[in-house]
Amino acid sequence: MSLEALLVVSAALFGVGVYGALSQQSFVMIMMGLELMLNGAILAVVAFWWGSTGGNPEGQLLAVVVLAVMAIEAAIGFALVANVYRVRKADISEKLRRLRH
């Protein structure tokens, strides 16, 4: 177990998240991709705290901030899914043509 191995694992989680967020059509599945990216991010933050900061508690504090970001993303995401379903009856991103460029 080394910092390099931890960073490779977190990169793999982030990559899977990028794939999911870009490829899925369903809104909730897109949110799952975003969550997986944040999952990789939190692993990288804690890995750096463990291997590179000499136990400085501010590294753990950054991980707490990432956790808060996760909660905010989920809450706003669910609210948007509920809103867009009620107003446009849309459950996949292809149904939202008005947002196209």
């Binding site: 910092l3 490779v8 990559g15 870009l22 059509q25 599945m29």
Partner: peptide
């Protein structure tokens, strides 16, 4: 239920390779 499947695979693999390269 997927769209732009190939682009997504390339983007995901690219993100993994780039970040892993930084880590290594």
């Amino acid at each position: 239920m997927v769209h732009q499947h190939r682009t997504s695979i390339v983007a995901g693999a690219g993100a993994f390779v780039a970040l892993a390269a930084v880590g290594l």
